[in-house]
């Protein structure tokens, strides 16, 4: 498949005696929205961190747009067009919302020297404002990120992953703590990006409604291994998944 954006092959990762991720392989095609679900502690976040260079997997290979990225630093991976969020809220609390957003994009703009001698906003104010508008954070533009509510910070956190115009975005529980209206809003934002920019997504989420209505394909992880894979409907009716995760 020539339009495979992300390919994960035989990834395993253990912490001491715990095999958090056990020989996981999957591929994500361009423009896909892949859901990654599974019980708490099934290894979803660990898998993300292995893919994104935050953790070094014990074995396995990861390719982004056909390029091997094993052992690559997170910053280099980001420059290849991969954006991400963390499960824990991860913003820059003492900086304004605007500065958070600009910081998220500035490494992709100009050179090291143009960032030192050029304009203070790296020429990103306009783009940052559009993104802030897009995520409906306009009224909070000049507030310190750390003073926002949890849900607002969660939106900012997600917004930052988009600033550099990534091809591939991995989101770890973007809906946690976000209210229903905002959730609908967030889903709409992701779908807009997916449609207009062809952005590929991998989303970890426990909110089934969110996953089922957003994703084109779902992978179910349990105890570090993939137990099911398919369309939202297929996964929902899979007996093994119901037993392990969804419950009857």
């Amino acid at each position: 498949m020539s339009d495979t954006v992300l390919s994960v092959r035989n990834i395993s990762k253990s912490f001491g005696g715990i095999r958090a991720v056990n020989d996981v392989s999957f591929e994500v095609g361009k423009g896909e929205v892949l859901g990654l679900i599974g019980p708490n502690g099934s290894g979803k976040s660990t898998l993300f961190n292995c893919v994104l260079g935050q953790l070094r997997p014990d074995q396995g290979e990861v390719h982004v747009n056909g390029k091997p990225v094993a052992g690559m630093r997170a910053c280099d991976l980001n420059r290849l067009g991969v954006g991400r969020t963390f499960q824990q809220l991860s913003v820059f609390p003492e900086m304004t919302v605007l500065d958070n957003i600009i910081l998220a994009g500035q490494e992709h703009k100009g050179t090291m020297w143009s960032r030192l001698f050029g304009s203070a906003d790296a020429g990103l104010s306009g783009e940052a404002d559009r993104l802030i508008e897009f995520f409906r954070l306009r009224h909070l533009r000049q507030e310190k990120a750390g003073s926002l509510s949890y849900g607002q910070q969660k939106l900012l956190d997600a917004a930052m992953a988009f600033m550099a115009g990534p091809d591939l975005v991995l989101l770890d529980e973007p809906a946690g703590g976000v209210n229903l209206t905002m959730l609908g809003n967030l889903k709409e934002r992701l779908q807009t990006y997916n449609r207009d920019h062809g952005t590929t997504f991998v989303v970890i989420e426990h909110n089934m409604e969110f996953v089922m209505s957003l994703c084109t394909r779902v992978i179910v992880l349990a105890e570090g291994s993939i137990i099911a894979e398919g369309s939202p409907e297929e996964v929902r009716s899979n007996q093994q998944v119901i037993d392990a995760y969804l419950g009857g």
Partner: peptide, 20 residues
């Protein structure tokens, strides 16, 4: 932008790294 990057390093180095 360098100053902003230094502050980013102080406040959240892991996120900073993941932003390139």
């Amino acid at each position: 932008p360098w100053g902003r990057a230094f502050k980013g390093l102080r406040e959240n180095p892991i996120r900073a790294e993941s932003l390139g």
